Simulated assay, not measured.
Amino acid sequence: MDNTPKKYFVEQGSIVREIWSKADNILFVFAGSAAEFALNKAVDWLYFTGNLPADPLGRLFSTVAYGRMIIFSEYDGALAAIDKINAIHHGVEKARGAQIPDWAYRDVIYMLIDYSIRSFELLERPLSDEEKEDVFDVFYRMGLRMGLKDMPYNYKEWLISRVDHLREHLVQSHYTLDLFKQYKKHLGTVRYQLLKQVQLLIVPDEAKRLLPIDRLSYLSPVISFYKLTRLVGLHGLLKEAILPPAYKSQIREMDVW
């Protein structure tokens, strides 16, 4: 019998596991990312395959699946998931005959760091400096495995680099407006309004000012109520009321690992 302790890419006590073990946290991560992807100067790469505008929710759940494989799998399985992501991207580059800019890859890693922290702090509690460093370290190592260059070495350096990326790599374009049209088409009017309200709460100011959304926020009191429903075990009912019926089973699976 092999008693060798299992090795994980993300240790079992990591705050990243806690963040990514709850569906509402993950959904808030991707609400923020949906906004920022729409503004990124490299968003044309997401349009090259047509997958994102054609099925933004399907793309969300595909990305979530890879993220959870990396975070919850044993070490070799996590590396295999990262390598598969790399292979998919390299296939797109080959098909287009160009390379995705290194800064665009870093932007995605930065989103995962930032929105993991923002979603947890919005829905749960403030994170300690050590916990934020833990979040940074997980996605930093993911970036290294992907072969990314010029990654900051710690959370404090990342904070500076993150602001630079937000200022240099975001712009409202026709892709921005089209993606938001697709979000509305696939979510429906009510859920689309909810998405924009979440984005108002979670997206950095540098990105928020470029978004095609209203600035009137009414979701903060709802978030307070939502936290209360968690305590009494009713948050699942509220969650199902605001999600497309076709994806309810996949949402429930995010809460179970």
Rank of each mutant, 00 (worst) to 15 (best):
L216E: 13
A246S: 12
S224Y: 13
L238C: 07
I71K: 07
W158E: 03
I242K: 15
I100Y: 14
Y153D: 11
M146N: 10
L238P: 02
Y218K: 10
E11P: 11
I85Y: 06
N3F: 05
D178Q: 05
L159N: 06
R215C: 05
L46G: 06
P244C: 05
K94M: 08
L60T: 02
H174Y: 05
T63M: 01
I202F: 01
R162D: 14
G233K: 02
V203H: 05
F9H: 15
F120N: 12
E130A: 14
A54M: 07
K248F: 08
M142F: 15
A241N: 10
R68I: 13
A241G: 14
H169I: 01
M146A: 12
E18F: 07
F139T: 09
S33D: 11
E74G: 09
L210N: 12
K94T: 09
Y183R: 03
R59D: 04
E157A: 10
I160G: 14
L60N: 03
Y226S: 10
V92G: 03
Y153R: 14
A54I: 08
M151V: 01
K208R: 13
Q250H: 15
G188S: 10
A98Q: 13
L210F: 03
L234F: 00
Y183Q: 01
P212H: 11
A246G: 09
L219G: 01
S128G: 04
P152Q: 06
R191K: 10
S119F: 02
S217H: 07
T49W: 13
G188R: 14
D164Q: 15
L243P: 04
A246P: 02
G91T: 11
K22R: 14
